[in-house]
Amino acid sequence: MRNLLNNWRFQLILRIVLGLFLSISGVAKIMDLAAFGKAVNGFGLLPSTWVVLVTVIIPYLELILGLMLLLNFYAKPAYVTALTMLIIFTALSAYKYFSGDISDCGCFGKLLQCKTDEKLLIENALLMVLFALGFFKMKGTKNE
């Protein structure tokens, strides 16, 4: 297992998969910002002015982070930022789930309906492990 995690091919595939994941998620939200804004507002935690700001910033940030991973351009900061965002999103989703609301989380816009349920929390936990692996096992590059 250790050999696999240290293998440059595994690291490359992991970086590409996570980069595509972020890019697709960002583009899906950008394609329908109104629906994503509705999902953000559905968490009921932000004032309306912040909902608009978050609705615009998050999808573009996801797209930029995904492209950074795909291009291996400052990939370590991209991993850390994406992992931090995922931790926050997971905490918010857990709050929503344990409050009894299992409506769409807005993770993939209208491309894919994702309910805020235990399956989403488990998937996010797995993604957190993958982002952490990507960060900690990444070989040094010029663009760190």
Rank of each mutant, 00 (worst) to 15 (best):
M1D: 04
N3L: 04
N3S: 13
R9Q: 12
R9E: 06
F10G: 03
L14S: 05
I16W: 11
L20P: 01
L20S: 02
L22V: 03
L22Y: 10
S23T: 15
S23G: 12
I24E: 06
S25R: 00
V27E: 01
A28R: 01
A28D: 07
M31V: 08
D32F: 09
L33I: 13
F36S: 05
G37K: 06
G37H: 04
K38G: 12
F43C: 03
G44S: 08
G44Y: 08
S48A: 13
V51M: 07
V51R: 10
V56L: 12
L61W: 11
L61G: 09
L63Q: 05
L63H: 03
G66A: 08
L69K: 10
L70K: 09
L71H: 01
Y74Q: 08
P77S: 11
A78W: 05
L83F: 15
L83I: 04
I88E: 06
F89V: 01
S93H: 09
Y95M: 11
K96V: 00
Y97H: 14
F98G: 00
G100F: 05
C107T: 09
G109E: 01
L111G: 13
L111W: 14
L112H: 09
Q113Y: 15
Q113D: 05
K115A: 15
L121F: 09
I122R: 13
E123N: 13
N124K: 09
A125F: 13
L126S: 14
M128W: 05
V129Q: 04
L130Y: 14
L130R: 10
